[in-house]
Computed example of a mutant assay.
Amino acid sequence: MAGDIFVGFDKNCPPGKSAYNDGYVNSDVFEAFRMAMEAALSKDFAPALDIILEGQYMNIISFIDLDSEAFNAVINTLRSYFSIDADQPSFFVHAKWAWDNVIEPFLSKDERYWSAGGHGCLPGMS
């Protein structure tokens, strides 16, 4: 069974197209990404993690209900987590694939990403 990861909402989406930025992943990738988020966020961002994983039993992970501040804090934390090259748990490879191929490509389309000082949390920008 597959899962769906909803990253955000694109207000500039043309009429007739889905404004939700999401990607379907297979069940192994979905579970790996869920476990990675728990590893990265459970200590400092438990309330945000609860919001993101609220639909996990329906095979949905969603960042849509996070406000701008929580969204950017979570994205920055996950970006740091996925940049670590040290020994990682076995699920890390699948989770990083989801990050690189599902999450990152949709970030720039979400206005919450740009709301923090005009550039959100784009890599390499300050």
Rank of each mutant, 00 (worst) to 15 (best):
R79W: 10
D87K: 06
A116D: 07
D85L: 13
R79H: 04
Q88M: 13
I84A: 12
I60Q: 14
Y113R: 11
I5W: 00
S80F: 11
W97R: 10
A32L: 02
I5A: 07
A98I: 00
R112P: 02
S18L: 08
I60A: 03
R112S: 06
G117F: 11
F71W: 05
F91T: 00
S80R: 12
F9K: 08
I60P: 02
Y81P: 08
P47C: 06
D44I: 12
S27P: 00
I51E: 02
K11I: 13
E38R: 14
G120W: 08
V29K: 15
Q56F: 08
R112E: 03
A86G: 06
L41P: 02
S83K: 09
Q56E: 14
A40D: 03
D87Y: 04
V93M: 11
F30I: 04
S18D: 11
D44E: 13
V7C: 09
E54G: 15
F91Q: 00
G118D: 09
K17G: 01
E111N: 14
H94I: 00
C121G: 13
S126K: 15
K109P: 01
D65A: 12
F92Y: 10
I60G: 01
F6E: 07
N21R: 11
F71Y: 15
K96T: 01
I61C: 10
E104G: 00
G124M: 12
A86D: 09
S18F: 12
I5Q: 03
F30E: 00
S115K: 06
E54K: 13
F91H: 10
V93I: 04
R79V: 02
R79E: 05
N72A: 09
A98F: 01
T77E: 15
M125D: 07
A46G: 00
L107A: 03
G23R: 15
P105D: 07
Y20H: 05
P123N: 11
D22S: 13
Y81F: 15
R79I: 01
N21P: 01
A40K: 01
D10R: 09
N26W: 06
D87E: 15
I52M: 00
W99L: 03
K43G: 02
L53W: 01
C121N: 14
C13S: 06
W114V: 05
A70Q: 14
V74T: 13
A19W: 05
V7T: 15
E54W: 01
V74Q: 05
